[in-house]
Simulated scan of single mutants.
Amino acid sequence: MIFASICKRMQMQTIESYSMTNLETIAKLAGVHPATVSRILNGEENYKRPAYAKRARKIRELARQLGYKPNAAARAIAKKRFGAIALLQHVCRNRSYLPQCLLDGILNATEQAGYSLHIGRVDDQQLADEEFVPNLLRNWNWDGLLVNVAVEPGPRLHQLLTHHHVPAVWLNVKHDHDCVYPDDFRAASELTSRLLADGFRRLYYLGLGYHSPVQHYSKADRCAGYQKAMHEAGLEAIVFTPDSEKKLHDILDSTLTRDHSNGKKAAWIGYSKLEIEILLQRGVGQLGLNVPNEFCLATFGDDERLPPFCSYYMQAPRMELGQQGVKMLLKKISAASQMLPAKALRWQLRYRTGTP
Rank of each mutant, 00 (worst) to 15 (best):
S5C: 05
E111K: 12
D303W: 10
L102F: 15
D243E: 15
Q227Y: 04
G43R: 03
R9C: 01
Y181V: 13
F200W: 06
S17F: 00
A63L: 03
L329T: 07
M314W: 02
A220S: 07
V147Q: 11
N108Y: 10
N148A: 14
T355G: 01
L87N: 04
R258Y: 01
D123E: 02
F240N: 04
L289Q: 01
K246F: 13
M339T: 14
V32Q: 06
V37C: 04
A84L: 03
S261F: 00
P182N: 02
A73T: 09
A336E: 14
N262S: 12
M230K: 02
K79S: 03
P50N: 02
A72Q: 08
Q100T: 15
K331T: 06
A113G: 09
H90Y: 05
K79E: 03
G83M: 02
R93H: 11
D259F: 02
Q159H: 13
I85P: 13
L98Y: 03
C223L: 13
P167R: 01
I59M: 00
R93N: 11
A197I: 08
L345T: 05
L208G: 00
K247F: 12
P213D: 13
P99R: 02
S261Q: 14
Q286E: 12
I269C: 06
C310F: 10
D143Y: 13
L157N: 04
A63V: 13
D198C: 08
Y205V: 03
L297K: 01
V166E: 11
F240G: 04
L145E: 07
N290A: 11
K219F: 15
N135P: 13
P356C: 09
P99W: 09
D221H: 03
L203S: 04
H164V: 02
A4I: 11
L161Y: 03
P307Y: 10
S212H: 13
Q159G: 07
L349R: 00
F132Q: 05
A237M: 03
S261C: 09
D198S: 08
E294T: 06
V291E: 04
Q286R: 09
D243F: 10
R194D: 08
G288N: 05
L29D: 03
N42K: 12
L88H: 01
